[in-house]
């Protein structure tokens, strides 16, 4: 029982990173009705920008954070222009294929600029444990949890209390009604990509810090984790994305402890299949429920 609870604690910390990735996917899916599978690779660009600044220029954590965020935002803006704004509204498949092409492009760019593949990222400092009875929380886990909570709070304020948030929610609800209400749909889509990029940049930064290194595999990893968490929690539901991320983290932590790392991956994808069959809309997903007032 102690193990189970300890695993759950670890899982929530890991899951909070997954939750952020799933939120980025969900925001874009909500306004576009399309998947952006290049989301993970955009974050990969960000963490490599951070690693580049770290190895060549400065130790400053603020500068590394800014570089990570800027890299993710620039790559995301590129994806939005090339794979979404430039493609007709009724060609969803073309958009998805296009994001796949951008993904390959981004990986090649990184392979070119960073030939050693694995690069050091600034670490969180020395890792002490916070203990309470038989349980403990690693400092990096606490850091992830707190950052995630801060992002969630910020996102709730943006969506609930800004005119942009209102327009985003309206667009997610009904594209045609949004257009006729005078909403500049292209502008809101672009801003939503930037918002998703900021969330992804923060997620990438804290994951890279807790790993202490980055590799080009990061893009694939982030896309897979984010997609699985989104599907489990519920397509187009922000609460579902958070719940799905947490659940995925907990399941992984338990599976790793009881069955080992290779079984963990098999189990996670088995659960994804089960979720797709039994709960095709995910746990909290309904039609268009990104947010309820």
């Amino acid at each position: 029982m102690v193990d189970f609870i300890q695993n759950t604690l670890d899982g929530i910390a890991l899951g909070s990173a997954y939750a952020l990735l799933a939120l980025g996917f969900t925001l874009i899916f909500g306004v576009m009705g399309r998947l952006n599978i290049a989301y993970g690779p955009c974050i990969m660009i960000g963490v490599f920008a951070g690693a580049g600044v770290y190895s060549d220029l400065t130790q400053s954590i603020v500068m590394i954070f800014v570089a990570t965020l800027a890299g993710t935002i620039l790559a995301s803006a590129y994806v939005e222009r090339v794979s979404f704004a430039a493609i007709r509204a009724d060609a969803a498949l073309a958009s998805m294929v296009s994001t796949f092409a951008v993904w390959m492009q981004l990986e090649e760019i990184v392979a070119h600029l960073f030939p050693a593949r694995t690069y050091a990222f600034k670490e969180l400092g020395h890792l002490s444990l916070i203990e309470a009875g038989p349980f403990f929380l690693r400092q990096e886990s606490l850091f992830m949890l707190l950052v995630t909570l801060a992002v969630l709070l910020g996102l709730a304020l943006v969506l609930g209390r800004s005119h942009f948030g209102l327009e985003l929610r309206a667009l997610t609800d009904s594209r045609r009604a949004a257009i006729i209400s005078g909403i500049n749909v292209r502008r809101i889509i672009f801003l939503t990509f930037l918002l998703a990029a900021m969330i992804g940049g923060v997620a990438g930064f804290m994951i890279a810090m807790s790993d202490g290194q980055v590799t080009p595999k990061f893009g694939l990893w982030a896309t897979m984790k984010g997609l699985v968490a989104m599907v489990i929690g519920g397509l187009a539901s922000l609460r579902g994305a958070v719940l799905g991320g947490m659940l995925l983290g907990i399941i992984e932590a338990q599976a790793q402890w009881y069955f080992g790392a290779s079984v963990r991956e098999i189990l996670v994808y088995a659960i994804l299949f089960a979720a797709l069959i039994l709960l095709p809309r995910g746990i909290l997903g309904g039609p268009h429920t990104v947010w309820r007032s």
Partner: peptide, 12 residues
């Protein structure tokens, strides 16, 4: 906008 309140439908 079914998931927005009545007032929000007008605000937007």
């Amino acid at each position: 906008f079914g998931n927005l309140s009545v007032a929000e439908n007008l605000w937007v």
